[in-house]
């Protein structure tokens, strides 16, 4: 028993250090991004390009076409491709000058790196969403009323973004060490994201379209997306140590 308080006393400063390391990594990523705007500009521009392509794709559909039917899908499509761009960037600058090695040499628990990176990525993804969603609505849905309730849309985007950031951070850490980084990330990312996307598109769609029993549909899809988030984040968290040490 005498060892118990000793380990507890030792664990507390360790946890405090982990918290300090977590904040340091997160702050560093944000400071670097605000200095270069590398991720945000490339993601933002990519979104604009995607929206332009949507306009072309929908140009022949005529006035009678109800864009709301596919709005959720379009929104998620833009989001998923831009997020891959950003995820790649977030690990590339760690790799560039061997900084990742310096990070690994410090007395940091590997999950701390995972959580800090994932939270940083989540923040950037949300910033991009804050730009994208109003723009999308302005450009494609200004003549349509929302069938469901508006709060459903940001909420479903948030739950989706959590999964994208978590699993994406793991996959980006893998792909950054491969030949053809961007391509590999896409190949690994899209099929793994499939269930989350399906559920998230369903939830967003319920918010946009409304209709019969849309509240129940929304919560069912949200529960599925949330379940995916929990399971896959746990898996990514458990596997990250192997990936980052390889």
């Amino acid at each position: 028993m005498p060892s118990a308080p000793a380990t507890a006393a030792k664990a507390r400063p360790a946890r405090k250090l982990s918290w300090r390391q977590f904040r340091a990594i997160l702050r560093k990523d944000i400071v670097m991004e605000l200095r270069t705007f590398e991720m945000l500009t490339s993601m933002g521009l990519y979104t604009l390009l995607t929206l332009a392509i949507y306009a072309i794709a929908l140009s022949a559909s005529g006035n009678g076409f109800d864009v709301r039917l596919i709005a959720a899908g379009l929104l998620w499509l833009a989001f998923i491709f831009t997020s891959m761009l950003g995820l790649n960037r977030s690990l590339v600058h760690e790799k560039d000058q061997g900084c990742l090695e310096a990070l690994l040499l410090s007395p940091v628990d590997r999950p701390v790196i995972f959580f800090a990176k994932a939270v940083g990525n989540l923040i950037f993804l949300l910033i991009v969403q804050v730009f994208t969603v109003p723009l999308f609505f302005l450009m494609f849905l200004s003549s349509h009323a929302i069938g469901g309730q508006f709060w459903m849309i940001p909420l479903s985007l948030l739950v989706g973004a959590v999964g994208v950031a978590g699993v994406g951070t793991l996959l980006a850490t893998i792909s950054v060490n491969t030949r053809g980084r961007d391509f590999i990330l896409a190949v690994l990312f899209v099929p793994l994201m499939y269930p989350l996307l399906l559920a998230a598109v369903g939830a967003t769609s319920a918010g946009v379209l409304g209709g019969q029993s849309y509240v129940a549909d929304f919560w069912r899809d949200m529960a599925l997306a949330g379940g995916y988030d929990v399971i896959m984040l746990l898996a990514a968290y458990g596997l990250y140590e192997f990936v980052i040490g390889a």
Partner: peptide, 24 residues
């Protein structure tokens, strides 16, 4: 290592795909 990690996470993902495809 990468292949092992991806194999594991893909195997976890597969039944989730199965369930969600049926439920949505």
């Amino acid at each position: 290592v990468y292949a092992a990690v991806f194999g594991i996470i893909a195997f976890i993902d597969a039944p989730i795909s199965f369930a969600i495809t049926r439920l949505v």
